[in-house]
Amino acid sequence: MKKFSNTYIFLYVTALVVVIAVVLTLVSTGLKPRRDRNKQAEKCQQILRAAGHDIDRSKAVAAFTNLAEPLTDDGRQYRVVCADGTEGVAFRLDGKGLWGPIWGYAVVSEDGQTLKGVSFDHKSETPGLGAKITEQSFLKSFEGKKLYDKDGNFVSVRVLKPGTASEIAAENRVDAISGATLTSKGVDKMLEQLETISLSSPEGASAR
Protein backbone atom coordinates (compact mmCIF):
# COMPACT_ATOMS: atom_id res chain seq x y z
CA MET A 1 0.00 0.00 0.00
CA LYS A 2 1.24 3.46 -0.87
CA LYS A 3 2.31 5.73 1.94
CA PHE A 4 0.95 9.24 2.13
CA SER A 5 2.66 12.08 3.99
CA ASN A 6 0.74 14.28 6.41
CA THR A 7 1.23 17.27 4.14
CA TYR A 8 -0.33 15.37 1.26
CA ILE A 9 -3.33 14.35 3.37
CA PHE A 10 -3.83 17.89 4.57
CA LEU A 11 -3.57 19.40 1.09
CA TYR A 12 -5.81 16.70 -0.35
CA VAL A 13 -8.64 17.37 2.07
CA THR A 14 -8.30 21.13 1.71
CA ALA A 15 -8.43 20.93 -2.07
CA LEU A 16 -11.44 18.62 -1.96
CA VAL A 17 -13.35 20.84 0.44
CA VAL A 18 -12.61 23.96 -1.58
CA VAL A 19 -13.68 22.38 -4.86
CA ILE A 20 -16.92 21.03 -3.36
CA ALA A 21 -17.76 24.29 -1.61
CA VAL A 22 -17.17 26.37 -4.73
CA VAL A 23 -19.24 24.15 -7.01
CA LEU A 24 -22.10 23.95 -4.51
CA THR A 25 -22.14 27.68 -3.96
CA LEU A 26 -22.28 28.29 -7.70
CA VAL A 27 -25.12 25.82 -8.23
CA SER A 28 -27.04 27.08 -5.23
CA THR A 29 -26.83 30.74 -6.24
CA GLY A 30 -27.61 29.83 -9.83
CA LEU A 31 -30.79 28.02 -8.88
CA LYS A 32 -31.89 30.34 -6.10
CA PRO A 33 -34.18 32.52 -8.25
CA ARG A 34 -35.92 29.38 -9.44
CA ARG A 35 -36.44 28.04 -5.94
CA ASP A 36 -37.71 31.39 -4.68
CA ARG A 37 -40.09 31.58 -7.62
CA ASN A 38 -41.46 28.15 -6.73
CA LYS A 39 -42.11 29.23 -3.17
CA GLN A 40 -43.72 32.48 -4.28
CA ALA A 41 -45.94 30.73 -6.82
CA GLU A 42 -47.07 28.23 -4.21
CA LYS A 43 -48.05 30.97 -1.79
CA CYS A 44 -49.95 32.91 -4.45
CA GLN A 45 -51.77 29.78 -5.55
CA GLN A 46 -52.73 29.00 -1.96
CA ILE A 47 -54.17 32.43 -1.28
CA LEU A 48 -56.07 32.42 -4.57
CA ARG A 49 -57.44 28.98 -3.83
CA ALA A 50 -58.80 30.24 -0.52
CA ALA A 51 -60.53 32.98 -2.50
CA GLY A 52 -62.14 30.37 -4.72
CA HIS A 53 -59.94 30.66 -7.80
CA ASP A 54 -58.66 27.39 -9.20
CA ILE A 55 -55.49 28.46 -10.95
CA ASP A 56 -52.56 26.52 -12.29
CA ARG A 57 -49.28 26.94 -10.39
CA SER A 58 -47.52 28.38 -13.43
CA LYS A 59 -50.07 31.19 -13.82
CA ALA A 60 -50.56 31.84 -10.11
CA VAL A 61 -48.12 34.74 -9.72
CA ALA A 62 -49.48 36.69 -12.66
CA ALA A 63 -53.08 36.18 -11.57
CA PHE A 64 -52.18 37.10 -8.03
CA THR A 65 -50.88 40.54 -8.96
CA ASN A 66 -54.20 41.23 -10.69
CA LEU A 67 -56.46 39.93 -7.97
CA ALA A 68 -54.73 40.71 -4.70
CA GLU A 69 -52.80 43.45 -2.96
CA PRO A 70 -50.93 43.25 0.33
CA LEU A 71 -52.45 44.98 3.35
CA THR A 72 -49.47 44.66 5.66
CA ASP A 73 -45.72 44.48 5.13
CA ASP A 74 -45.24 41.08 6.75
CA GLY A 75 -47.00 39.18 3.93
CA ARG A 76 -49.71 37.79 6.20
CA GLN A 77 -52.73 39.84 5.10
CA TYR A 78 -53.99 40.53 1.61
CA ARG A 79 -57.03 42.17 0.08
CA VAL A 80 -58.24 39.79 -2.59
CA VAL A 81 -61.00 39.58 -5.18
CA CYS A 82 -62.95 36.36 -4.72
CA ALA A 83 -64.27 34.09 -7.45
CA ASP A 84 -67.80 35.45 -7.01
CA GLY A 85 -66.62 39.02 -7.67
CA THR A 86 -66.82 40.33 -4.10
CA GLU A 87 -63.78 41.44 -2.19
CA GLY A 88 -62.41 39.82 0.95
CA VAL A 89 -59.39 39.82 3.19
CA ALA A 90 -57.01 36.84 3.24
CA PHE A 91 -55.38 36.07 6.57
CA ARG A 92 -52.42 33.80 7.05
CA LEU A 93 -52.97 31.13 9.73
CA ASP A 94 -50.43 28.94 11.50
CA GLY A 95 -51.07 25.92 13.65
CA LYS A 96 -49.94 22.51 14.80
CA GLY A 97 -51.08 19.24 13.28
CA LEU A 98 -50.37 15.76 14.51
CA TRP A 99 -46.78 15.42 13.24
CA GLY A 100 -45.69 18.92 12.39
CA PRO A 101 -46.79 22.42 11.48
CA ILE A 102 -49.92 23.12 9.46
CA TRP A 103 -50.76 26.48 7.93
CA GLY A 104 -53.15 28.07 5.51
CA TYR A 105 -55.11 31.12 4.44
CA ALA A 106 -58.65 32.10 5.32
CA VAL A 107 -60.52 34.65 3.23
CA VAL A 108 -63.08 36.62 5.27
CA SER A 109 -65.82 38.68 3.66
CA GLU A 110 -65.55 42.44 3.84
CA ASP A 111 -68.01 42.80 6.72
CA GLY A 112 -65.87 40.36 8.71
CA GLN A 113 -68.82 38.01 9.30
CA THR A 114 -68.49 35.25 6.76
CA LEU A 115 -65.73 32.87 5.71
CA LYS A 116 -65.46 33.05 1.92
CA GLY A 117 -63.08 30.12 1.73
CA VAL A 118 -59.94 28.53 3.10
CA SER A 119 -56.89 26.62 1.94
CA PHE A 120 -54.58 24.56 4.09
CA ASP A 121 -51.21 22.94 3.76
CA HIS A 122 -49.12 20.79 6.03
CA LYS A 123 -45.58 19.62 6.51
CA SER A 124 -45.99 15.97 7.38
CA GLU A 125 -49.53 14.88 8.21
CA THR A 126 -50.42 11.26 7.55
CA PRO A 127 -51.25 10.77 3.86
CA GLY A 128 -54.85 9.69 3.44
CA LEU A 129 -55.85 10.83 6.94
CA GLY A 130 -54.57 14.16 8.23
CA ALA A 131 -53.28 15.10 4.79
CA LYS A 132 -56.91 15.27 3.63
CA ILE A 133 -57.07 18.82 4.99
CA THR A 134 -55.67 19.93 1.63
CA GLU A 135 -58.42 18.24 -0.37
CA GLN A 136 -61.20 20.15 -2.10
CA SER A 137 -64.01 18.19 -0.44
CA PHE A 138 -62.86 19.32 3.00
CA LEU A 139 -62.04 22.90 1.97
CA LYS A 140 -65.40 23.33 0.23
CA SER A 141 -67.26 22.65 3.47
CA PHE A 142 -65.91 25.92 4.92
CA GLU A 143 -67.36 28.16 2.22
CA GLY A 144 -70.01 30.58 3.44
CA LYS A 145 -69.76 29.59 7.10
CA LYS A 146 -70.33 32.32 9.69
CA LEU A 147 -67.71 33.47 12.18
CA TYR A 148 -70.26 35.00 14.58
CA ASP A 149 -73.41 33.52 16.09
CA LYS A 150 -76.87 35.09 15.99
CA ASP A 151 -76.15 37.25 19.06
CA GLY A 152 -73.00 38.64 17.48
CA ASN A 153 -70.52 36.71 19.61
CA PHE A 154 -67.40 35.34 17.96
CA VAL A 155 -67.58 31.54 17.81
CA SER A 156 -65.20 30.95 14.88
CA VAL A 157 -65.91 28.11 12.48
CA ARG A 158 -65.55 24.97 14.56
CA VAL A 159 -64.21 21.72 13.13
CA LEU A 160 -66.17 19.08 15.06
CA LYS A 161 -67.00 15.43 14.84
CA PRO A 162 -70.45 14.98 13.30
CA GLY A 163 -73.04 14.79 16.07
CA THR A 164 -71.06 16.39 18.89
CA ALA A 165 -71.64 19.71 20.71
CA SER A 166 -74.99 20.33 19.11
CA GLU A 167 -75.33 23.77 20.73
CA ILE A 168 -73.09 25.08 17.93
CA ALA A 169 -75.25 26.07 14.98
CA ALA A 170 -74.75 24.40 11.61
CA GLU A 171 -73.62 27.68 10.05
CA ASN A 172 -70.74 27.85 12.56
CA ARG A 173 -69.34 24.36 12.14
CA VAL A 174 -67.95 21.87 9.64
CA ASP A 175 -67.42 18.13 9.96
CA ALA A 176 -64.00 16.92 11.09
CA ILE A 177 -62.11 14.37 9.02
CA SER A 178 -62.84 10.92 10.39
CA GLY A 179 -59.70 9.16 11.54
CA ALA A 180 -57.74 12.38 11.79
CA THR A 181 -58.95 13.75 15.10
CA LEU A 182 -55.78 15.56 16.09
CA THR A 183 -55.19 17.20 12.73
CA SER A 184 -58.82 18.36 12.71
CA LYS A 185 -58.36 19.79 16.19
CA GLY A 186 -55.30 21.64 14.89
CA VAL A 187 -57.39 23.22 12.13
CA ASP A 188 -60.07 24.11 14.68
CA LYS A 189 -57.49 25.86 16.88
CA MET A 190 -55.98 27.61 13.89
CA LEU A 191 -59.30 29.16 12.87
CA GLU A 192 -59.80 30.55 16.38
CA GLN A 193 -56.89 32.90 15.67
CA LEU A 194 -59.20 34.71 13.26
CA GLU A 195 -60.82 36.58 16.15
CA THR A 196 -57.67 38.39 17.21
CA ILE A 197 -56.02 38.84 13.84
CA SER A 198 -59.12 40.00 12.02
CA LEU A 199 -59.77 42.63 14.68
CA SER A 200 -56.16 43.79 14.76
CA SER A 201 -56.07 44.19 10.99
CA PRO A 202 -56.44 47.71 9.59
CA GLU A 203 -59.36 46.49 7.44
CA GLY A 204 -60.99 44.21 9.96
CA ALA A 205 -61.35 46.88 12.65
CA SER A 206 -63.39 49.13 10.41
CA ALA A 207 -65.48 46.19 9.26
CA ARG A 208 -66.74 45.33 12.73
Partner: peptide, 16 residues
Protein backbone atom coordinates in the same frame (compact mmCIF):
# COMPACT_ATOMS: atom_id res chain seq x y z
CA UNK B 1 -7.13 8.79 -1.56
CA UNK B 2 -5.02 8.36 1.57
CA UNK B 3 -6.50 5.30 3.35
CA UNK B 4 -6.49 7.00 6.76
CA UNK B 5 -9.02 9.59 5.71
CA UNK B 6 -11.00 7.60 3.15
CA UNK B 7 -14.23 7.65 5.17
CA UNK B 8 -14.15 11.44 5.34
CA UNK B 9 -13.43 11.69 1.62
CA UNK B 10 -16.31 9.35 0.86
CA UNK B 11 -18.65 11.33 3.09
CA UNK B 12 -17.64 14.55 1.36
CA UNK B 13 -18.22 13.17 -2.11
CA UNK B 14 -21.56 11.60 -1.17
CA UNK B 15 -22.83 14.71 0.55
CA UNK B 16 -21.79 16.78 -2.45
Amino acid sequence: IPPRIRIIVQLLVVSF
